[in-house]
Nucleic acid binder design. Structure first.
Lengths: 340, 340
DNA sequence: GTGAAAGCGCTAACAC
DNA sequence: GTGTTAGCGCTTTCAC
C-alpha cells in the first residue's frame, strides 16, 4: 500500500485555510480564531498529519535534538546515565543522538562534525579526561560535560561528582573499621577521575596518621579489563607476601576483582581483609559478600546536566548558570567492611 | 566569537563557480573537471564547510539516519547489541537515534512517530514480544527486528537467535553431567524468548526420558528483578524440601541468583547442584564458580540485522532478502557444570 | 484573524 | 563541464 505523506499545504487545502494558518495552529503561536483552530486540528488528526521535522529544522535552524557523546555504552554506570538523560529529554520533546566513541578521538571528532551538520541544539559529553574538539563546530551551541575537562573553555559547562571526597570517605571507612595497611587499586591515567579518588585516599591516610606505602598502590594497565586486572594484581600482591588488611578498589569492578583474588587464596572478607568499591553498580550488590561502596548519584548528575543544557538552549544569554557543579557522594555500607 | 555558518553558495562564490558545481564536487556525482574539483575541495577544507544535513535531508527525503528502538539500555546484553549496531552504521556513514522505550507502549508509539517525522531511513527494533505500531508511520521505510514479532507484517524483517535450541542444549548439558531433577527458572510471559527456551528444555527432558515435574518450574513475576527473583524462588524451593540436582536459569542473572541462594544454604556447585545460564554476559564469567552458559552471538545478530536494514534501505525492491534469519547458539562450558 | 510570499540550504533537471 | 533555477515543507514578515 502506497502511503501518502501529507504536507502543511495539503492540510491547508483540506481545511480551506492558508498554510500560514495551519502553521500557526500547529505551533499555537500566531493569532487564529478558536473555530479555525478546531477545524484544522480535526483535519490533522483525521489524516494523521505529522510535521516534517527536516523542513522545520531547516527553517528555524533548530532540530529539537541533542547529541550525547559517550565513551562506551557497555558500561553499566554510563548506561544508567545515558538512560536517564534520554528520559529527561524525551519528556521535554527532544530526541537524543547517542554517540559511542569507544574512547576513539577520530570517532569523537567525526561525531562532533556530524552532530553539527545535523543541527543539534546542544551536546552532552560523558567524557573524562580529554579535551573536546569543539573547534570543529560551526555553530555556537551549548555543551555540558559530566566530568572534568581542561578549563579554558567558557562554552563548556561541567557537572561532576566529588570524586576526591568519595576517595576520602572510602578510605576513612576502612580506617575506622581498623585497617592499617590499605591498598588502592587504580588505573594509570594522568588527569582523571582516578587521580582525584587517589588524592582523596592520600588525604584520608594523612588525616589519620597512617603512612603512605607505594607498594600498596596497585596499578592496572590501560589495556587490561578492570576485573581481570584487579584480580591479577591482587594475586601478585599476595604472592609477594606484601601484607595488607584493606583494599580500596577505585571502582566496583576493581574491588570485586580483588575479592575474587582474595577468596581464591582463602582469605576471608571482611575478617581478614576489608574491601570498598566505588560507583554502587550492580556487581557491588550481588557480590559475595556484598560490597561497601561509594554511591555516585547518577540521577542527580543526569538531571543536573540535562537541565543545565536545556536552560542554555532555551536562553543562551543566561549567565546565572553555574559553569561547574560538583555533586556530593555518600557511602553505602555492606558486608565487605563489617566488623564481627 | 561569532561563528559564521557557510553555505554552499558561499563556497560557490569563494571558488568562482556555481552552487551546482559545488554540490557535484561534494557528492562526487555529476561531471566536473579535475581542476574545479580540486579548487572547490580546497576552499571547503580551508573554510571548514560542513553540509547542512537538514537541508539535504529535506531535499532528498533521506536523512542518513536510522532509529534503534530498545526496551532498555541498562541491560548488558542489549547494550552490547546497541553498541555493535551503532558501530556498524557509523562505518557506513549513518547516525543512529537510540530510543529507550522502557517497555512502555506509549513511549514506543511516540518514538515511532518522532522517528518518522525526523525522516529516518529505517528502523531496527530490539524488541521481544510486542506487536509494532508500524501503522503510525506515514512513510514506507524498512524495519528489522531482532526478535520474534507476530507474523503478518511483510514490511518487518526478523533476525533472531535460536532460543529453542539454546534451551535444549542447556538442558542436555545438565543431563549429560548426570542431573536427574532439573529446575528451570523462567519469567512468566506469554509469547516470548522465555517460552522458546522453556520448550527446548521440555524437549530435552523428553528426548532423554526424564519426566517433567511442574514443581521444578520456578516462575519469577514480571515485577521482580531477575537476580533477586531467582534467588528468592530458589530459596523457597530449598526450604520446601523439593529435591533437585540441576538448575537451568533462562538467563545469566537468574542462574546467578540461584547460585547465591544455593551457596547461602551451603549447597556446593557443581558438586551438589549444577547450574547453567543463558546469554554469556559478564556475570557468567565472574560468578563464583563461573557459570556454564549458552552464548548468543551478539555480533552476528548485530551485523546481520544492520546489514539487512542497509540492504533494504539501498534497494527497497530487493526481494532476495530473507524475512527471517535464525542464528545458531553454542554452549560455553565453565565450572558450574563440571564433574569431579 | 488570515493570506501571500520569501527564503532556510540543498539537489537535480534542464540548458548551453 | 558548468550555470540557472525550481522546489523539498516549513515559519514568519508584511499586508490587509
Amino acid at each position: 500500500m502506497e502511503k501518502k505523506k501529507l504536507s502543511i499545504i495539503d492540510i491547508a487545502h483540506l481545511a480551506n485555510v492558508s498554510q500560514a494558518t495551519v502553521s500557526r495552529v500547529i505551533n499555537k503561536n500566531g493569532r487564529f480564531s478558536e473555530k479555525t483552530g478546531k477545524k484544522v486540528e480535526e483535519i490533522i488528526k483525521k489524516y494523521g498529519y505529522e510535521t516534517n521535522m527536516t523542513a522545520k529544522s531547516l527553517r528555524i535552524a533548530k532540530s529539537k535534538t541533542i547529541g550525547l557523546i559517550v565513551p562506551s555504552i557497555e558500561n553499566e554506570w554510563f548506561a544508567s546515565l545515558i538512560s536517564q538523560i534520554e528520559t529527561y529529554f524525551f519528556q521535554h520533546n527532544y530526541s537524543v543522538f547517542i554517540c559511542n566513541t569507544s574512547r576513539n578521538k577520530e570517532k569523537e571528532i567525526s561525531y562532533f562534525k556530524s552532530l553539527d551538520a545535523k543541527m543539534v541544539d546542544g551536546i552532552i559529553c560523558i567524557t573524562g579526561e580529554n579535551k573536546l574538539p569543539i573547534d570543529v563546530l560551526t555553530r555556537d551551541i551549548p555543551i555540558v560535560c559530566t566530568d572534568r575537562v581542561p578549563a579554558k573553555n567558557n562554552n563548556v559547562y561541567i557537572v561532576s561528582t566529588d570524586h576526591y571526597r568519595g576517595g576520602y570517605i572510602a578510605t576513612k571507612e576502612l580506617i575506622k573499621k581498623g585497617c592499617k595497611r590499605i591498598c588502592i587499586i587504580v588505573r594509570n591515567r594522568s588527569i582523571s577521575v582516578n587521580e582525584q579518588r587517589f588524592q582523596g585516599y592520600l588525604q584520608a591516610l594523612k588525616d589519620h596518621h597512617l603512612p603512605y606505602d607505594d607498594q600498596l598502590k596497585i596499578l592496572i594497565s590501560n589495556k587490561e579489563d578492570n576485573f581481570e586486572g584487579a584480580k591479577r594484581a591482587t594475586l601478585k600482591l599476595i604472592e609477594n607476601h606484601i601484607h595488607f588488611d584493606g583494599i580500596f578498589g577505585t571502582n566496583d569492578w576493581r574491588a570485586y576483582g580483588a575479592i575474587v583474588a582474595l577468596q581464591s587464596k582463602y582469605l576471608r572478607i571482611p575478617e581478614d581483609v576489608k574491601v570498598v568499591g566505588f560507583d554502587n553498580i550492580t556487581i557491588s550488590k550481588v557480590s559475595q559478600p556484598p560490597l561497601t561502596t561509594i554511591n555516585q548519584d547518577t540521577q542527580k548528575i543526569a538531571v543536573n546536566a540535562s537541565k543545565t543544557l536545556l536552560d542554555l538552549m532555551n536562553n543562551p544569554a543566561n549567565n546565572t548558570i553555574k559553569h561547574i557543579q560538583t555533586l556530593p557522594v555518600h557511602i553505602v555500607k555492606r558486608k565487605s567492611t563489617e566488623n564481627k
